[in-house]
Structure formats: C-alpha cells, structure tokens
Design a protein around this nucleic acid. Structure first.
Lengths: 211, 211
DNA sequence: TATAAATATGACACCCTGTCATATTTTGCG
DNA sequence: CGCAAAATATGACAGGGTGTCATATTTATA
C-alpha cells in the first residue's frame, strides 16, 4: 500500500500522479507498465515515486483495493434488495463489474488490468485470501449478516466457507473470460448463470430418489 | 513453443540447456527468471537462446505442457480404475500433482512455478481454454469416452461443459493454495474434497422436498 | 530560531531483453 | 566431390528499466 507520505501529498500533485498511473495502466498491460513512464508523465523525480510506492505491485494493490471497495458496496445493496440471495449477489457483482469496466474512461484501463493474467490472479488471490476459511476477512465478514442462510443446505460449520470457496474462483474465472473471450459478454454471462444453477442443484443424479 | 531447431539440438546440448532452465526456475519465481542466467549456466550464447525460444513465456509454456501430458495419463488411469468417476478423477489429479511436486528434485521448481501468480493463471487459462465450451480441446476430448455420464445429472448439452467449467477453476485454486497456504496439504485436501461433495449434492436446500 | 524529522531529488550502479549483421555448419544435388 | 543455398550460431549493441543513496530542501517543533 502507498505510504503515508503519498496520502499527505497536496491534492494537485497526488492527482497528477494518479492520472499518470491511470494513463500508463491504460496504455499497456501490467507486465509492461513502466515506472519510468509514469514519473515522466507525472513530472516527478524518480526518487519521489519510491517515497510513495514500494514498487509496481504496490500500485496495483492500491488500484485493486479501490475497486474492491466499490464491490463491497454493491454486494450489500444486492443482498438487501434480494432477501439475502447469495447467488443473486454474485450475479449482480458480475454485472456491475462488467458495466463498470466497459465505461468509456475505464475501458482500456480495466481491459489491461484483467487481461494480464498475473493481475487477474492477484485479484483472485486477494479475494480468495479474504474469504479463506481461516482468515475470514472483512469483505465476507461484513456481508455475512445479510445473507439468507436458510436457503442454503448447510450441514456443518465448514459448508458455508466452502460454498464461497467454490463461488469465488468460479466468478473470478468468469471475469477473466469476459474480457478475453471472443464470445462476448452475453455468452459468458449465460454460461456463468448456468453454472450457478448447477451449483444450486448439484451435479449428481438421483439425489432424493432411491436407486 | 520451442522451435524445430531446439528439438534438433544434439541431445547433450539440449539437456544442458534444459538443466539450466530447470535450475533457474528453481532458483527464483517466474517473474524473476533471467534469460541471462540461463544462457550463462548453459554456456550458450545469447543469440542461440532466441533461436530456440521466443521468450520467457515460451519456455514456460513448454514446461507446463510437459506436466500437462503427465496429467492426462493419470487422468485416464483414474477413470479406468474408478468406473469413469469424474470427481474421483479430479481428486486423483490433485493428489498426483501434490505428490509429484513435492518430490525432492521438483520441489523448488514447482513451488516457484505455482507460487507465481502469473504462472498459475497461465496454467489455469491454458486448461480453461482447452476445456472451454467452444474449443473442447484434446485434453477433455480424449477423456470424454471414459467418463461415466450416467452418474451426472445432465439435462442439456451445456451441462457437462459447465460442470467442467466449475471443476477446473476450483481445482486450480486448490493447487495454488496447496503450495502457498501455511495450513498445509491435509487441510487443503480436506477442503477440496468437501467442496467436491458440495458440488455433487448442490448448495440449496429442499431439492426434492416440496416446500 | 535552531534542531530534528520529513520530503524531495536525480545521478548511479546494475541488470535485462531482443535484434542483427556476420560467421560457421549442414544439406542438397549436379 | 564441390559448391550454392538453407540452417544455425554468435556476441556486440541499442534501448530500457529498476531500486538506492548521499545530498538538498522543507516543515514541524520546542
């Protein structure tokens, strides 16, 4: 995360830097992002950059955490509107993300971000970590009270965590694909909803039925 | 993929190069892998390297495809042994991978490989692509006839593809975590099996039961 | 206002990558 | 065999990039 110094920066200077960062991340994929470019654009000396950020990844984390904050807000709204439907929440988040990302000014920026495999994974890891069984991070933690647990077939204390453990990578994959695949949004979204349905009902036949 | 020239190399020279690659990938994570180091170790001139590989990623793809070949073999064996049980196959692959990776000589190598988020994602993408709904690649294609479809609750032509679409990212995540998480193999494996069980039975209550 | 704590700065040391013109080998074949 | 064409090999080079550090400036503080 950026240093205290960064946040203390006079607004103007900080904004110019942030803009430069946004521009550079829009120009090329994360892998190719160059600190040199950024400082040139922002007109700050090299040394200053390292006073604010640890390195390239540090910037990335900052950018992603921004997005994550937004996500959290939307997740809450979705849950409140839909009686705590966990599946609907995931779908809403999917839709929101797609919409946000395709906004003109965010387009190139996010395309590059999501396009880069390493970023995508960082993002997954980020969330996966937070939703991990042990470290039940803030993200899910805050949502927990709003989720309708009664709809879920929870038989022991691990089940809920594990459900998330399935939903998260699945959703992450849908994100990646949505910005990569030629097949486009409609197609990916269809697949994603189909998969959510599969999760709801289970993969095996003859659940209730006796042979 | 490596060029034809690479495969035509006299065995001795090629092996020396492969060894150097293995060593470098064991030394640091993919991100830090240096072609300079490799050519120094292998004692080949810079230009030669680029005669064999396109770049760093090209090497990576080669290494991963190797592993993938192995996987395929094990998947087949598993299916044959277990009456085409898809879930058991995934679990077997998980176990095999863990075992293989923890072999002394592969340990550092794979740890670095899996530890690097970008590699991991590349690997996921790789597989995800092959199992994608449209491009039903060789991997799954070859396994298809061995899978016991009757056990699965398949209601339309998309269902099977979508089941894989859930299983693949889930398994990928399990791999990543297994080599990262402090909690260790037993813990991760337990979680993975729990999640497979959840997939089998479905997340929602009251499936057969009428309200 | 003097001294300590924070910031800013940019030259430096170091490392890397991909290319290209130039050798050296191999191959194909009359 | 002898030689031109096709393959390979080579390593110097141009162009970039990163993180650090000793040295200035500012700002805060007593």
């Amino acid at each position: 995360m950026p240093t205290k110094t960064f946040f203390n920066l006079p607004e103007e200077k900080r904004n110019k830097l942030l803009e430069a960062i946004h521009e550079e991340f829009s120009r090329v994929s994360f892998e190719e992002v160059s600190i040199n470019q950024i400082i040139r654009m922002a007109g700050i000396p090299r040394g200053s950059f390292y006073q604010y950020f640890e390195d390239k990844k540090d910037m990335l984390r900052y950018l992603l955490s921004d997005y994550q904050e937004m996500l959290k807000g939307h997740a809450l709204v979705s849950l409140e509107r839909n009686g705590g439907d966990l599946f609907q929440m995931f779908l809403d988040i999917f839709d929101f993300t797609y919409g946000y990302v395709t906004e003109e000014k965010n387009n190139a920026f996010f395309k590059n971000l999501f396009a880069d495999i390493s970023v995508n994974a960082e993002f997954l890891r980020h969330r996966a970590h937070k939703a991990g069984q042990n470290t039940f991070g803030e993200f899910i933690g805050e949502l927990l009270p709003y989720i309708d647990m009664d709809a879920l077939d929870i038989r022991n204390e691990d089940d809920f965590g594990n459900m998330l453990g399935v939903l998260l990578p699945l959703t992450g994959e849908a994100f990646t694909t949505a910005f990569f695949d030629i097949s486009g949004y409609a197609q990916i979204r269809l697949r994603y909803t189909q998969r959510l349905e599969l999760l709801k009902r289970g993969f095996l036949k003859a659940k209730g039925a006796k042979t």
